[in-house]
């Protein structure tokens, strides 16, 4: 086989390979522009219960991805979970922003939802979110439901004592 045909085939091969890589990068995957260190800042939030929240879970505001969960630790003094959120520098939030742990769908993954407040000052790197809402734990919810059910007949008809 002559040199030029060989070069041509190898060129086609390499171009196809790089094309496949670009396809995987652009069409299949997405650059998580919020995961690199330089372009994010950290917010902290303490939760009573993080439920099944995982590191790298999405942080969303109004349903839009704005960052990812950096780490989850237990504060040994107050026994609350300290969650560090890596937020994309593009997004700033008012100081009275609240964080809650939500679930996408019934069986979906858990994520942190940020509800923006109304103040004009914005949160900076290392700030702590004051108002948080813990994850809804299904077992607790069922337990509540059951206690309500059992209490309800006892209180509602209120057996009227005869005279």
């Amino acid at each position: 086989m002559s040199r030029t045909t060989l070069d041509l085939w190898v060129g086609v091969f390499v171009a196809l390979g790089i094309g496949a890589l670009i396809f995987l990068a652009v069409k299949v995957g997405s650059f998580s522009d919020v995961s690199s260190r330089g372009s994010t800042y950290v917010l902290e939030a303490t939760f009573e219960d993080v439920g099944g929240l995982k590191v790298r879970a999405p942080v969303k505001s109004a349903g839009v991805l704005v960052g990812r969960v950096g780490s989850i630790q237990l504060d040994p003094k107050i026994f609350r979970a300290v969650v560090r959120l890596n937020i994309n520098k593009e997004f700033t939030f008012p100081t009275d922003t609240s964080a809650s742990i939500l679930t996408s769908g019934v069986l979906g993954e858990q994520y942190v939802g940020l509800g923006a407040g109304y103040k004009t000052e914005v949160l900076k790197d290392g700030n702590v979110l004051e108002s948080t809402q813990p994850a809804v734990v299904l077992e607790k919810l069922i337990g509540q439901f059951l206690t309500n059910k059992t209490e309800a007949p006892a209180s509602a008809p209120a057996p009227v004592p005869a005279q």
Binding site: K27, G29, S30, S32
Partner: peptide, 19 residues
Amino acid sequence: FWSQMRAAVDFRYDVLNGV
């Protein structure tokens, strides 16, 4: 099909580790 795939597949974590 495509949007769920794009949301779940991370370039660094999935594609690059495969490479």
